[in-house]
Amino acid sequence: MSRFGVLVEVRLRPGIADPAGSTVARALPALGFDGVEGVRLGKAVRLTLEAPDEPTARRTAEAVAARLLANAVMEDYEVLAVEALPNAPEEGPRP
């Protein structure tokens, strides 16, 4: 088994009102950022998991997102990145 880090994005579906994103967007011109057309707030979730290979790690993350991380009525999710991580240090006292 190998260790993987997986980054999952959970975002509001298009058309779902995002009052927090709108509030951030309205604040930007006052800070001198004039060209920002849209702001949508979502969640970024980092999972660390063990899996035999990268496709399996991705499938597990997608299952976690579908079952728990996102509410399909108002949210979509996407696995943005899967990276191999160094193996965890062995348990037990160190020399």
Binding site: A17, P19, A20, T23, N71, M74
Partner: peptide, 17 residues
């Protein structure tokens, strides 16, 4: 109940924040 799928729809953050 909406999260459990026993009722339709979902409850989001208030428009006023």
């Amino acid at each position: 109940l909406t999260e459990a799928g026993l009722l339709p729809g979902a409850l989001g953050v208030n428009r006023s924040l």
